[in-house]
């Protein structure tokens, strides 16, 4: 089987400071990869390089495109990459402000991607938006409200709806539950897990939180100081960590 995403030797420096180095992995259709590691270990840097938000210094990010098959998204022309990122890719930011248009209604936020790919029928856009609000458990009568009037959890769910409306095949998430109350986190995770299964999504999820990983991720990658120190099936890594750092990470969580 062809990997949906094939990542080869991604390195990114900020001047002399290391962001991440020599990261490689394959992600297969329907698979969820979790990336954990302490603050500053390069998780966001890596994710941004994968999603085309930052340009890595070295490496390839090969995506199995619908039309042309596997293609390096780093060297592909920018219009094509931007098209990917609003059709086949999704990106859920930790801070909903980065992923939503706060001055646009919930319906407009969800509809934007549809309009971006040429949908020009208001009635259709609206009914798809209502459908998606329903899917992410936002009451339909909030469709004309702005996200600034929503709670943090609702904003995050709206961000997910806005991203998934074009039926992407790959979703990048950077701390999707960060900054939310524990009970709200749990509900969001449930929702995410349901959607990922139901839609057969592939995902790369960056998080601090091992509970998120246990619930969502099939495979796990542990980063430290910009490097990948351990990778494997989630249960295996969490139950039988090999690297000293992973052992520390797992035990520190268990102690809490």
């Amino acid at each position: 089987m062809t990997p949906l995403l094939k990542v080869e030797n991604i390195s990114k420096y900020y001047g002399n400071r290391l962001g991440c180095r020599n990261v490689s992995f394959d992600l297969y259709p329907g698979e969820v990869l979790g990336i954990v590691g302490e603050s500053g270990s390069g998780k966001s840097t890596l994710l941004n390089c994968l999603a085309g938000h930052q340009e890595p210094d070295t490496g390839e990010v090969i995506f199995d495109t619908r039309v042309d098959g596997p293609k390096d998204t780093i060297t592909m022309p920018e219009p094509e990459r931007r098209m990917l990122s609003r059709t086949d890719w999704a990106f859920v930011h930790q801070n909903p402000r980065d992923g939503l248009r706060m001055s646009v209604s919930a319906g407009g936020n969800v509809g934007e991607r549809l309009m971006a790919v040429g949908e020009r029928h208001y009635g259709n856009i609206r009914s798809v938006a209502l459908d998606w609000l329903d899917k992410v458990e936002i009451s339909e009568d909030r469709v004309d409200d702005r996200p600034s009037e929503f709670s943090g959890g609702m904003q995050q769910r709206l961000q997910i709806a806005r991203n998934l409306v074009t039926a992407p095949r790959l979703i990048f998430m950077d701390e999707p539950t960060g900054g939310l109350d524990v009970s709200v986190q749990a509900r969001l995770l449930d929702l995410l897990r349901g959607l990922v299964r139901e839609l057969g999504l592939s995902a790369v999820v960056v998080t601090h939180d091992l509970a998120v990983v246990r619930l969502l991720a099939d495979r796990l990658m542990v980063m430290k100081d910009g490097h990948v120190v351990e990778t494997g099936l989630t249960d295996q890594v969490l139950d039988d960590p090999q690297h000293a750092y992973t052992q520390l990470l797992v035990s520190s969580v268990l102690q809490v």
Partner: peptide, 13 residues
């Protein structure tokens, strides 16, 4: 797409 978002907002409101 964004230009139509503005028109969408108009109709919604």
């Amino acid at each position: 797409g964004l230009m139509h978002v503005k028109l969408y907002e108009d109709i919604a409101r």
